[in-house]
Write a protein that binds this DNA or RNA. Structure first.
Lengths: 160, 160
DNA sequence: CAATATAGGACCGTTTTAGTCTTATTTGCG
DNA sequence: CGCAAATAAGACTAAAACGGTCCTATATTG
């Protein structure tokens, strides 16, 4: 599906909202209210983020959550890692059932892993602070692609 | 889960194998045999690829499948598009339930879409021929391996 | 002690995915 | 013509993932 889960989506929303007031605590109910999300869901997201030390929590009557670090030092990749259950990876393995002919499967697999790190690089390069900017963060789409296979890209851009 | 489906994985395997002999036809049973995949599954994959005109098919006794175009002109993004059901997109929408406070949700959403195109750019820049190379295709070494530094990267990359 | 909050985890319904199967259609060949 | 081989299309099933809820425990404040 090549899609980030809703939990990750909520995570970026919640964290970016908290980033607006880095010095105070937000309770789950407050966050759910202002962001129009369900309370248990927000709770689940924050618990997961807390386990990965992206947010800190304070229990008790006046407790709540806050970002563990400044928004500029938290990457989207970290949020994805915290909220997506399975470890990051575009494929589990291209050659699942034993060896296929000529190890070509393993070649494919190695290349998938390369693509993988490239995608991860994109996610790693965007911080929570970037996500909050009203103007879209500058992520040049073809910066990575261009130096790989220029001919393909040229063809694609013409036909799409 | 930010992962490509198994069908897509199979698709790259099957297509890269067919790319080895661009001038002949491969039957489903042959492909399944050499790649150690199940026949119906291979059939399913090829049917989907055929609907998207990535492979051509010939029915009948000596029929089979072949790549519709040279491997160098087929991008991984096209295979993903053909085999992933849902349209490409990392999030469906970051602000699902109406408007959240201050439109921050929509800001997040816009930025997810930017990230989206960047990821797609990566996939778009890799051709099937690249995937077949024994040496991993050059997808820009992950100089971004470590955390943080997002600000620097975001600034360095120019807007689309 | 009581109220308020998070922590952890179990639980369930829905959706998606992977895979199989059935039926129809096309083509080659004796 | 008629049979065999092959794809086309889609229905169907089992399993896994996802989204969401709920329950119980624990910590903090006053």
């Amino acid at each position: 599906m090549l899609r980030v889960s809703k939990l990750t989506d909520y995570g970026t929303l919640v964290m970016s909202h908290m980033a607006g007031s880095p010095d105070r605590l937000f309770s789950v109910t407050e966050l759910a209210g202002t962001l129009r999300l369900n309370t248990p869901t927000v709770s689940k997201v924050l618990k997961a983020l807390g386990r990965h030390n992206l947010v800190t929590s304070v229990r008790g009557t006046r407790g709540g959550y806050a970002l563990a670090r400044p928004a500029g030092t938290i990457s989207v990749a970290e949020i994805v890692d915290a909220l997506e259950e399975q470890p990051f990876g575009l494929t589990e393995c291209s050659a699942l059932s034993g060896t296929c002919d000529l190890e070509s499967g393993c070649r494919i697999r190695a290349n998938w892993q390369r693509i993988n790190t490239a995608v991860r690089g994109v996610l790693n390069g965007i911080s929570l602070a970037d996500m909050m900017q009203p103007a879209p963060v500058a992520v040049r789409p073809s910066s990575i692609a261009t130096r790989v296979a220029p001919r393909v890209i040229a063809d694609k851009l013409k036909t799409q």
